[in-house]
Write a protein that binds this DNA or RNA. Structure first.
Lengths: 215, 215
DNA sequence: CCCATTTTTTGACAAAAGTCAAAAAATGAA
DNA sequence: TTCATTTTTTGACTTTTGTCAAAAAATGGG
């Protein structure tokens, strides 16, 4: 009897996963939707993007980039979540970004400047990702000049977010940063542990716990 | 006798200023040199940039942007220096960037996102600036699609710098940030007061003074 | 459902940096 | 050069956040 229940729940989980899994074309539709917010994409460009990239599934807690490597891939998260972190002097992980579905993931310093990375990228959940190598991306920029419009605007968009985060670290106390986070991204609390959130906010887990207890 | 000395030194200063002042074409050559590091510029594009922009001289301590305004101009510093700052809750100026010759100046949040600015831009020295409005810049992007390549790469370049600064604030102590600054930009100490540098490093002037005294 | 593992909380104390006030030093306009 | 103004330094004390250790709570694989 227990065997049957076990088998049933196993099948049910797989069924759920199949239900949640997007087809290849649905996945690319999401990428194109994200890109076309900035500038329309020709069918030819869409086809070239599909040709040059690949869709892959990655389990949770898998490294997409390690310190010392050169980041030569850009990821679009179709489903799932990832985080970017570095190791401080004592070897503790410090998160700098959390990224979710419909967002692009790179290590900025490493990818844009072709330098060895000082940061790590790791999935936080099972992910479906569209992966494009740096060289393939550059080929697309060369072949489709108007793709540079999208590239420019996407870069501007992530730049703004980066600035906002940097300014938040400069301008606000730990408590204000936490309140800002739950006001602007409340879903993050459902998907990310408090320890990870604390390091993202630039504070210790203990300090975050104390901030939360006095609210 | 004192009158003559005074007159002489007055003339000498003016002579120096004239010597240092660049002609219009020399000024634009500097802009083009900065841009062509990323991608060659056609003569047609160069002409259009000259047509769409203007060269202006601004005295030191003049505001280029105030809080609440929409930043709709991008500045290229031909000569001089500027700083970006915001006012904290107590109304104190906090510097976020120092910018010098051959660098572009915008308020990222305001310019890219067309939002009212929370920051100020002020010259720190007499400046010679090339000014381009946002709408003119967009016209250039539309008319010269390949200009988007330059725009994209420039945005990537400043994005990297912004990330590096944000990471420096996150990863290093006040003392480390100061040592990094004098290692990487020693000239900054000659041109910017310690009070301004302290707020740029995210510390009080007193803390910077103590860091310096114990070196 | 259970137990090992991970995460979060709490307490006591330490370290880093801020604040305020006053003195010292540097700057710059007449 | 001189004097007023601005900038920098110094001392005493406070605040914020970090660290270490241990307990409590939550999670998740078998």
């Amino acid at each position: 009897m227990i065997g049957f229940v076990g088998l049933f729940s196993y099948l049910a989980v797989n069924y759920l996963e199949i239900m949640l899994k997007l087809s290849v074309s649905e996945s690319y539709e999401r990428l194109f939707a994200a890109f076309s917010q900035f500038h329309p994409l020709s069918q030819e460009l869409r086809d070239a993007i599909v040709d040059h990239s690949k869709l892959m599934n990655v389990a949770k807690k898998q490294l997409l980039l390690s310190e010392g490597e050169k980041s030569d891939k850009i990821y679009f998260i179709v489903t799932g979540a990832a985080r970017i972190y570095y190791l401080n002097e004592e070897g503790r992980e410090k998160n700098t970004w959390f990224l979710f579905e419909n967002e692009l993931v790179i290590s900025v310093h490493s990818f844009f400047a072709s330098q060895a990375s000082f940061e790590y990228i790791k999935t936080m959940e099972d992910c479906s990702l569209i992966v494009l190598s740096r060289s393939r991306l550059e080929q697309l920029y060369e072949k489709f000049v108007s793709f540079n419009i999208i590239g420019r605007k996407l870069t501007e968009y992530y730049y703004i977010r980066n600035e906002a985060q940097a300014n938040s670290l400069r301008m606000h106390s730990a408590k204000e940063r936490y309140l800002q986070l739950i006001a602007l991204q409340p879903q993050i609390l459902q998907r990310v542990s408090l320890g990870h959130i604390a390091s993202y906010l630039g504070i210790s887990a203990e300090t975050l716990s104390r901030i939360r207890s006095q609210l």
